[in-house]
Amino acid sequence: MEIYRAILCSYVFSWIYILSSLPLTLSYRTTKVFNFAHPIFITYGAYVVIIVNEVLGREIPLAVAVFLAFVVGGLVSLISHLLVFKPLSYQRVSSNVYMVTSMGLWFIYQYVLYIVCQLLTRRYDVNFLSYSTIEYKDVRFLQDVLGLNSMPQYTITATLIGVSVGVALYILFNKTVLGLSLRGIADNASLVAICGVPINRLVNLTWFLVGGITALSGVIWVNFSGSTTPDLGLNIVVDNFAAAFIGGLYSLPITAVASIVLALIENMLLAVLNYYFGVQPTVRIAIVFGIVLAILVARPPMGAGGGLPYRFIKRVSRK
């Protein structure tokens, strides 16, 4: 039974990590901004669904949740870009300044959310600071029709969102002119600008897409987890960034595979450790960190993120 649960967890976490890591890689490639505020989009995606669910009287359908999360996540991302990252880029600052600023943004967003939750908790008499699971009515209906009632609902939700986002992105990037220009900007912005593509608008669009898609993993999360808190992003940040790092902040396919592998390793290992040694789930982060360290030593991600041509193993021989 334990192993069955672990497999289900790995499956859902795979989708959550893919949906949050792919946009991170995409945003780094396009804007060269190392956005530490990235996980906040997940949190905002989850919380907009929670809040609307309470207002609607706990009757939210998945379609509405996806739409809301996408728009809100996208807007948060776009606003960060327009108000903070764009003015910074005019100053020609180093990448460190971008990182510190994004960290500042992270805390602003997170604690604004805390305040909002506290206000709502008083207003609606529901604990928003640690919210339970949301059940989507239309997914329940779909399960009844297809006879999938034995499956937990979150697996259906994750599959629906993940597959449709994957198909949509594939069509966008491979079949449309817009997608081609977006890919072009990610590779060489000035070259695309010469071709007469309105770069500013497309960069804005990239930010919107990045925020929107990342927020969708929040929609899965509220369906899956029993407790959603405003520091949800902080709990996912490590896996999220780790997957993007393994992809070298460049390759989308490697990032996707890395997300799946990370989800598998940590859930299986966690299940085993918990079963035999009674280890708490809080060691999850230590497992991922171990993987990150191993990668840093064995195959340091150079290139996109910068790096030194320094070799620890020397070969010297006298002649």
């Binding site: 041509p309 020397k314 021989s317 006298r318 002649k319």
Partner: peptide, 29 residues
């Protein structure tokens, strides 16, 4: 200057009185 490692071949340098191979050394060395 040690920035890249050659794919093939070697680089020899006379330090004091004998030749040593310097390909594969780090730039600062």
């Amino acid at each position: 200057t040690g920035f890249h490692v050659p794919s093939e071949g070697e680089v020899l340098y006379r330090a004091s009185n004998e030749f040593i191979r310097i390909d594969g050394l780090n730039p600062h060395e």
